[in-house]
Design a protein around this nucleic acid. Structure first.
Lengths: 343, 343
DNA sequence: GTTAGCACTCCCATATTTTGAGTGCTGATA
DNA sequence: TATCAGCACTCAAAATATGGGAGTGCTAAC
C-alpha cells in the first residue's frame, strides 16, 4: 500500500472534521466550497476515491458522500488531529470543583467520573487503582473463627482492603498479633507487587522455622487473590441524546460493553503500558463486536507507577480534539491528587 | 365512582392479558372472536367504553383499540391476575444453579441478580442487606495513624464492614485492643440496629469513666455512618430486545432510573415494610417521571427481619403472572440461604 | 494532473391512495 | 332495559407515486 500524499492528508483531515461536526456524509461539491479548496469538485472526487481505496473513507451507498472508516479515524487521531490547548478550553473550574470534593477515595473517583461525563457530555469511566501498585502502610491479621483469618491492608492512599483467608492449622491470637507487627514493619512503604515478587521471599528465609512462618503462606495466597479494582461509569443518559448512539446496533454494543465490567476492566488495562492518552476506535475496543463507539483513556499514577485508568466512552464520531485533552488533563489532576494524598 | 361489575372485571382481565401477550391495542371485534365471548362486538364496545370512563383503559387514538392504563394494570395485578404456580414453572434449576454458587456473599448476590435477569429476560436487581439488621459476630479496632482508627465489623453472614474514624485524643494500642474485646463480647449476636438503640446506652453506664469510654463515642459515630448497601443490576441488554422499551422516552426513564443508584435504593426500600411481593407500575415507581417501566420486588430476610430487596425491572407490559412468582420464589430462596449461612 | 460536463444513481421528503381495523351512535329487538 | 346489527366515520399504516437534490463515475479536453 502506497503512502498518503500531503494533499490527501489535508483533505482527509478536513473530511473527518466536517463529519464530526455535522454527522452527514461529506460530498465533493459543497465540501470544496465550504472549505474553499482551490481545486474543483471533480478533483476532490478523485482524491476521495483514492482515500477510499486506501481504506480511510467509505460510502453508505453509491450516490452519497464519504464518511470516515475506523481506520480513517485512527489515522486522523494519530497524525492529523491537533488537540485544543488546555488553556483554550478553560478546565480551571474542573480543578476547583475537584478540590472541593471529599477526601474519601471512592467518592473522589465517583466525582471524577461524573466530571468526565458532564464536561464531555458523554459517558465517563474510571478504573480504580490496582492495589498491586499502591504502597502499603499497615497490615493487620485478625482471627474471625478457628478456620478463618481476616487480612486487612491499609494503603498509603487510605484505602482499606480486606480479605478472608482460610487456615488449616490453629493459630493463636498472640501469633497473629506479632505477625501483624512484623508484616507491617517489613511491608510498610512497599507495594503489594514488590511484596509478592521480592519481600515475601526474603522474609521466608529470615523467619524460617518460627511461629510466624505459618502465616506467611496464607498471606501470600491472600495477596495473590486481591482483586479490588472497581469500575465507575456515569452519564449513560448523555449517550441517549446522541443521534449516532441511538442506532440499535450501536446502543446494544455500548450497553453490552459497559455491562460486562470484567471485560471492560481488561480493555482499560491495555492503556496501562502507556503514559499518554490512548484512543480505541470502534472495533479496536473489542475485537470487532463493538460498533460505533470509541474509548479515549489514559492512566493516572501513584508514585511513579501507572495505577489506574480513566476516560470517556462515546460515539466514534466524537470530537477527539476536545476529548483527548480533557482526558489528559483529568489524568494529571488525579495523579497529582494521589501523590499528595499518599505521601 | 361506581364499582366494577363482574363482567367488566372479566373483560378487563382478558384485555390486559391479551395486550401483555401481543402488545397491540385490543379492538372489540377480533377480541370477541378470539376469546369466544358470547356477546357481540357492539356490546363489547359498550363495556370497553365503560372501562375507559372508569380509568382502566385508554385509546392511543380515536380509531384504535384499547390499551390498559397504569391504573388498569394496577387493578389487574391486585385483583385479577392469578399467578402461575411455582411448580408449573419449574424453577428447580434455579435452586440447583444457585446452590452451586460460591459462598462469598457478594458473588451470591451477583449471581442471584443474573438469575433474575436471565429467567425473566428482563433486568434483575438486588439491594444488598442493610447492615443494620445483620447480627454482629466480631468487632476490631485498629489504629492506622495517630488521628485515625479503623473499625472492623464482621457479621454473622461473613460480611466485613470497615469504617475509618477520626479521633481527637490519643489512644494507646492496648486500649484499642481491650476495647475490641469488650465490644466483641458485648455486641456479639446483636444487630447494629440493636446496638445503636440499646446496647450502646447500657455500655455507657457500665464503663463510664474507664479508658475504654473514650472509644464508645467514636464507635457510635462510626456505626451511624455505616451505609454499605449496594445495588446490583444485570441484564440491561435484555431490555434492548423489548420493543416497548426502546421507545426513546421509556428507555430514557429506565436508564435514568437505574443510573441514580441512590434514588433507586430508596425506591426499593419502600418494599421493606411488606412481606409479600410488591409491584410498582409506571409512575408509581417514582412520582410521575417514570414512563413505561414496572418494578416487581420483594424482601428477603435475615433471621426474622427484612434485610434487603430483590426484584425485576421491565416494561409495564410484562407478564406479571410469571414475574411475580419468580421474584417471590427467589426471595424465599435467598432468605433460606441467608438463614443457613448466618447461624 | 486537472477540470468541465454529462449521464446516471439513489436517498429523501412529500403527497396521494388504499386498506383495514377500529369507534360511536342509532334504532330495532327480545 | 340490556343487547346487538348496521352504518357512517376515523385514523394509522402500508403501498405507491413524484420531484428534487446531492452525490458519483467516467470521459474527453485543457
Amino acid at each position: 500500500m502506497r503512502a498518503v500524499t500531503e494533499r490527501e492528508s489535508e483533505v482527509l483531515k478536513s473530511i473527518v472534521q466536517e463529519y464530526i461536526a455535522t454527522g452527514r456524509p461529506v460530498g465533493s461539491r459543497s465540501f470544496v466550497q465550504k472549505y474553499s479548496f482551490s481545486i474543483s469538485p471533480a478533483t476532490m472526487r478523485n482524491i476521495m476515491y483514492d482515500l477510499e481505496s486506501l481504506g480511510f473513507l467509505t460510502h453508505p451507498h453509491t450516490s452519497a458522500g464519504r464518511i470516515p472508516t475506523d481506520t480513517g479515524y485512527r489515522y486522523f487521531v494519530d497524525f492529523l488531529s491537533d488537540s485544543y490547548d488546555i488553556s483554550d478550553l478553560d478546565y480551571g473550574y474542573i480543578r476547583d470543583d475537584f478540590m472541593r470534593s471529599e477526601v474519601h477515595l471512592d467518592k473522589m473517583f465517583m466525582s471524577i467520573t461524573k466530571m468526565l461525563s458532564s464536561v464531555s457530555r458523554l459517558a465517563g469511566i474510571v478504573l480504580t487503582p490496582n492495589p498491586d501498585f499502591t504502597a502499603v502502610k499497615q497490615i493487620e491479621l485478625v482471627s474471625i473463627d478457628p478456620e478463618t483469618v481476616l487480612l486487612i491492608i491499609v494503603t498509603r492512599t487510605g484505602v482499606v482492603i480486606n480479605k478472608k483467608i482460610a487456615i488449616s492449622e490453629r493459630v493463636t491470637r498472640d501469633i497473629l498479633f506479632s505477625t501483624s507487627n512484623i508484616l507491617s514493619s517489613e511491608f510498610a512503604g512497599f507495594s503489594i507487587y514488590d511484596i509478592k515478587t521480592d519481600i515475601l521471599g526474603k522474609m521466608r528465609q529470615k523467619y524460617s522455622g518460627s511461629d510466624e512462618q505459618i502465616c506467611l503462606d496464607v498471606v501470600e495466597l491472600a495477596l495473590n487473590s486481591i482483586n479490588e479494582q472497581d469500575i465507575f461509569i456515569e452519564g449513560i443518559e448523555n449517550i441517549l441524546h446522541i443521534p449516532d448512539m441511538i442506532e440499535k446496533e450501536v446502543l446494544t454494543s455500548f450497553l453490552r460493553l459497559i455491562e460486562e465490567k470484567k471485560n471492560l476492566a481488561e480493555i482499560m488495562q491495555r492503556t496501562m503500558d502507556s503514559d499518554s492518552v490512548q484512543t480505541f476506535i470502534g472495533s479496536e475496543i473489542d475485537n470487532s463486536y463493538v460498533v460505533g463507539c470509541s474509548l479515549v483513556a489514559c492512566c493516572y499514577k501513584i508514585g511513579n507507577k501507572n495505577a489506574g485508568v480513566l476516560g470517556v466512552i462515546g460515539p466514534t464520531r466524537m470530537d477527539y480534539r476536545k476529548v483527548v485533552p480533557l482526558v489528559d488533563y483529568t489524568g494529571r489532576l488525579v495523579t497529582n491528587f494521589l501523590s499528595n494524598v499518599s505521601r
